[in-house]
Design a protein around this nucleic acid. Structure first.
Lengths: 161, 161
DNA sequence: TCGCCATGGTTACGGTTGCAACCAATTCGT
DNA sequence: ACGAATTGGTTGCAACCGTAACCATGGCGA
């Protein structure tokens, strides 16, 4: 019997390098936090109950930039092209989005929100801003500043190479 | 034509409240960051190529606490019971985990890592610690401190009600 | 100009997920 | 002490996802 499990009654403590404290492990904390926040946001934005996350992101990206190609949407919203493709198809079916062929390059489609899609976007934006504002309002000013500093640094550290 | 889309050439700027800057929207930033970090970690921990995230969490939780029930695992690792159920079944099939009936309550199963599972846990822990350490090492000390402060505050704000 | 690689986008497939329904064992109210 | 509500856990189903293969078009070198 050579395993290093502590015998019963021998507490495993947090600084023990043979144990991982899951609740303090950064990837886990981030996942948990992100899931909670996304879930709350999808509650705040009721329409999202019928809108998948890729669809929401596509709506948000087209609303932000106007006319784009599917590839552009993927690049800006960090989605794989298959996700974008399916989201575009579904938004088109909902009649929130229009495709038109590109005159220069016939592989490309120029995507634009329809009037109804634009309206949906305009309704969504204040909900999103309000959600974010209310969330941050629960923190102290110094905490908000710390969060932004820390997040920026972590983004740099995580996304750099 | 009453929609408020700016005409072409009229730039949409970031402080325009009718536009959402996706790349600055907290839920989006968190999702993107979390995805990137999780993906990197799953590369660092190669075995995870054959281990789903629920399975990894189950392994981590049992390694951290010893013997638990499926419900306990779900509570500690923020997983729905169906995820836990499937993860437990799969780890059992891998022979990393043992189930034994509970004498007091016959609905319950007491779950423990097998010797092989314990070994896998022990191999995984330093990889996880190393991953986290290297990630944080790319940040300045003040940035690390800011991140921890900000994360804690955001967790409080997001998980409180 | 012809052949080849790159690019934009869609689709087929297998695996993962969430939800609700379910079974069995336990607890609670009366 | 008994039926109803609760709890631990599993399963069926439909939706979703990632990967790879695919089709059509375009760009480029010889």
């Amino acid at each position: 019997m050579t395993t290093s499990v502590p015998p019963p009654g021998f507490p495993r403590n947090a600084t023990d390098r043979t144990i991982l404290a899951l609740e303090a492990f950064l990837p886990y904390r981030l996942t948990r936090l992100t899931d909670a926040i996304s879930r709350k946001f999808s509650q705040a934005y009721r329409a999202r109950l019928g809108l998948t996350r890729p669809e929401w992101r596509t709506l948000a990206t087209l609303g932000q930039f106007g006319t784009m190609t599917a590839t552009d949407i993927g690049a800006h919203s960090s989605m794989h092209k298959t996700k974008v493709s399916r989201a575009v198809a579904s938004l088109e079916e909902r009649r929130w989005l229009l495709r038109e062929p590109d005159a220069q390059d016939r592989r490309v489609e120029r995507l634009t929100l329809s009037r109804v899609g634009q309206k949906a976007y305009e309704d969504m934006v204040p909900v999103a801003h309000g959600f974010e504002t209310r969330l941050l309002a629960r923190m102290e000013p110094e905490e908000r500043a710390a969060l932004l500093t820390g997040l920026e640094a972590l983004e740099r550290a995580a996304l750099e190479d």
